[in-house]
Design a binder for these strands. Sequence first.
DNA 1: ACAGGCGATGCAAAAAACGCACCGCTTTTG
DNA 2: CAAAAGCGGTGCGTTTTTTGCATCGCCTGT
Lengths: 300, 300
Amino acid sequence: MRHLKDFQFIEAVIRAGSIRKAAEDMNITASALNRRINRFEEDFGYEIFERLPRGVRLNPAGELMLHHIRAQRSDFVRLQSQVADLSGIRRGHVSIACSQALLPYFLPEQIAQYRSEHPGVSFGVNVRDRLEAERELSTFASDIALVFEPRHLVDFEVTLSITQPIYVVMRPDNPLAAQPELRLRDCLAHPHVAPSAHYGVRVLLDSAAKKTTYGRLRPLVESESFDFMRHYVIHENAISFQFPIGLDLSGSQGYVARPLSSRDVEPGNLLLGQLRGRTLPVASARFVQQLNQALQLHGG
Amino acid sequence: MRHLKDFQFIEAVIRAGSIRKAAEDMNITASALNRRINRFEEDFGYEIFERLPRGVRLNPAGELMLHHIRAQRSDFVRLQSQVADLSGIRRGHVSIACSQALLPYFLPEQIAQYRSEHPGVSFGVNVRDRLEAERELSTFASDIALVFEPRHLVDFEVTLSITQPIYVVMRPDNPLAAQPELRLRDCLAHPHVAPSAHYGVRVLLDSAAKKTTYGRLRPLVESESFDFMRHYVIHENAISFQFPIGLDLSGSQGYVARPLSSRDVEPGNLLLGQLRGRTLPVASARFVQQLNQALQLHGG
DNA sequence: ACAGGCGATGCAAAAAACGCACCGCTTTTG
DNA sequence: CAAAAGCGGTGCGTTTTTTGCATCGCCTGT
């Protein structure tokens, strides 16, 4: 779009850090780009870049402008998807920042179901931790976030929150599999693998372990990949921990899962959210509705 | 601003109803404007006007576009006021849609107080009934609304709601002035003037009157102007009705006011609101804060 | 001290926007 | 029923805007 061209150039300058480099990226001359920037600032009434010896950098006014640019663009694509929706076909792109646990089962199923009804909608799925996810929302890089997050952060508007007890993952022949619900002390006594320190599951386990005689976890393996851990316990007869939304509870995947007693470990909160105050594109808003319904089946 | 020029032309075409007339208004040729519109639609990917024999008119996609244009512009002026705020001086314009009752005392005082601190901010005050006020918000014609409104309408986000009992206005020598609180039946038996049917005060009085033996109001004069009615009761010794926020209760204005008993008439709700989901410019947001404080003194 | 990278600017070329005249069409008017 | 008027669209020459190139002055890191 014509009227967004200046914005594209400004963003290019921000990325490149200098007008000359940005000019190369955008395939125009530095002088032309320089004049565009200067004219824009003159029209706007305020400078948005500070000129440094080695290039340019946003000043505070520029930071506000950058946010404005992102909001404008996001609002424009929302308009486009709304207009496309008028003609019956739903178009658009839904970008999601989510926790690992959503990757194997939940999101593939949900996205496939949505796309079967609206093939014109494409998706972007990226794994982000809770802070990264919030940053993505506020830069309009992601439309919605789906993360395990005990605290509600600024700019993060929670649409839905469901609780998820921690499940223990193990081989079917593991002796612990005999019980329908496990106690934390039994698990800590058993060889176990665990996620790295800052993950939601680990935080909950650590704080719960403090109250036991074991005091803390002693994982055989620590990993950032739940995928890895889920497979690992099949090879060495250990146990792993995961939220049930990231598990196949049917037992057909070579492992079984049993919930930890809620007396021992408090459940985690899975939060569905978006940028506070933002109106989502139709496609994203509709997908959020679907997620809402689906998540409520996983328990609130 | 350069990148909003197309938007200005589009709005001109909408206003004029035809490209040729809009071209005259904007001091360019019809052919030039025609090409701008066509190019814009081509870039956008969808037509936004339907071509009629007598001119052009927005199609549904165009309606969405119009709303987008208004939102974009309003967001841009918000950005400008934010940037101006960075340099210490608060600039901007606050436009208010409000009920008559706010005009004589409340708003003049509040605006004067605000402007004494921020002389760079200008104000627009327009009398609108509750439906008009909501429409003004959704077209970005007004930033905030301050109306008596029992129902919460769509797109109207209520920031604060205070209750206001109806007061009876009369000359100081009126016999009713002797009592600190008045009963409705005494008022209905007394010569009275009243606002026209759709005003909030009238609606409350009508529904309350139904429960009395009088059944209904019998006003000597009906008027849409509270200003007129307030002055009228000084000339003919009748009584009038008004919310206290529109009155000077000191008695120094030639009239006195006494509350109607809350047993007889339920109080009205004064609602302060804005367009749902909208982020107000700094000046407007700050003024809303001030109104919040001031209104809470008038009782919640 | 010097080389390299930066933003700014004068000037000519290229591109975009514009104004004018005119077309085809429909509705209004006499 | 025909002429007039008003509309959106278009071809073409002209004007305005934007771009590219060469170059300047400035600062920094080696």
